[in-house]
Write a protein that binds this DNA or RNA. Structure first.
Lengths: 228, 228
DNA sequence: GCAAAAGTGTTAGAATTACACCCATGC
DNA sequence: GCATGGGTGTAATTCTAACACTTTTGC
């Protein structure tokens, strides 16, 4: 094997949830240079005997206290432009995590300053991120929006039991649209494996009691639910 | 910045074309250990001042002589399991390239032994690849199959001018199915921006002359063309 | 003329859309 | 009773699937 250049390899996490009717990303404030004081994606170096998904799961657990089974975590894309980190050549493998709105917002151990930011602000002008993280967030959001079309992943944003209207509000927040409640209900309940009816019901949203559902086993939607 | 582990970073290419009615991948025979003599994906180290897509384009040009504009090249996925390369920790960023069937099959400069292999054999038992390359090929093939559904990328496998029937044969080869020629024709010509009619026609496939088309400007198909 | 492939027409079914309307609760 | 949201019915429309049929070439 000839000599070859070496690189630092990190994982960065685009952690998304729906809070207050809006899609939000988890960001941490950088305590050290470069970009000291700027908001950035949570992440860190890949350890020597850890695989990439394992590093992503570890970082997510450190930031949120969540066990990997409870969340959806998938590889997003890898970023490796030569000048993306002023300290040297750093290649980062970005992962996308989709979470229910957490009761204890951020139970991080090493995140003194971590909070949820609406993605509208992050992708607009109101929050400036470190490194190329705004682009990574943008790619993560677009992946999430696309996946809601052809997978049942919208339920990953919901707690264990949820109503169809709550699921619909997830779609509306992620896509930034409104959906017909009646057609949405039929589409979701009529797609085998999308959701499973439970015994319970709730009136937490007012009006007639709504049935509670759990996530189903399906991984793909046929046919897809297209954005309007 | 604390101390951190460093890694070798490579790009590996899943280069696909359709030859003799079958989807085929470009593989090179390894001249050195490990896996000496085994077939593997073309690829190599990312140079210090090169970005990832640039490294992929350079490797592709070295193997095929093709300029980047003429081919479709996209990032596929990154593989970084600790033991995937016995020489040490190597993270590889896989790229997917889609090419027309080349007249001069492999005009590689540094590929003494390079050839096209039908993916059926690569993903079956008849060819054993080095490293985790079989899995990478599998991921690339699945990406290509999926993308034909919702993008006009099938045309990336065709020469500059092609008939609708030739495009249909691409789909049939990639998906391993048969498609109704009449409905396919209507779907392709009826989707704005998928293909653009040219002045020419050809009888190279026998029968009534077929109009020749070029790739259109569209990047997404609405509605998608689903696999049967 | 005949074979072969290109391309058009037509019809039945499936899925989406847009609403009207009824249901079951809290107050 | 009445407001509120949950859920079903139904018709118009669009998209797909299946296949009969016509067109234009080579031989």
């Amino acid at each position: 094997m000839p000599s070859f250049p070496t690189y630092a390899v990190t994982v960065d996490l685009v952690v998304l949830t729906v809070r207050d009717g809006a899609l939000a990303a988890l960001l941490v404030r950088r305590a050290a240079a470069p970009y000291r004081g700027r908001w950035a994606l949570p992440g860190g170096f890949v350890l020597p005997d850890e695989d990439l998904a394992g590093a992503a799961a570890r970082e997510l657990a450190e930031e949120t206290g969540l066990v990997p089974d409870a969340v959806h975590l998938e590889q997003l894309r890898t970023y490796g432009a030569p000048k993306r980190d002023p300290r040297g050549r750093v290649v980062t493998v970005a992962y996308l995590a989709l979470l229910p709105d957490l009761p204890a917002p951020v139970a991080g151990t090493d995140a003194a300053a971590a909070r949820w930011w609406p993605v509208e602000g992050v992708l607009g002008e109101s929050v400036r991120l470190a490194f190329d993280h705004e682009r990574i967030v943008g790619d993560g959001v677009e992946r999430a929006r696309a996946k809601l079309e052809y997978t049942p992943l919208g339920a990953a944003f919901c707690p264990a039991e949820f109503t169809i209207a709550e699921l619909r509000q997830i779609y509306e927040a992620v896509w930034g649209t409104t959906l017909d409640p009646r057609n949405f209900h039929r589409k979701v309940t009529g797609t085998p494996g999308f959701v499973v009816e439970t015994a319970g019901s709730t009136t937490r949203n007012g009006g007639r009691p709504a049935r509670l559902y759990r996530r189903g086993e399906a991984t793909l939607l046929h046919p897809a639910m297209l954005r309007p």
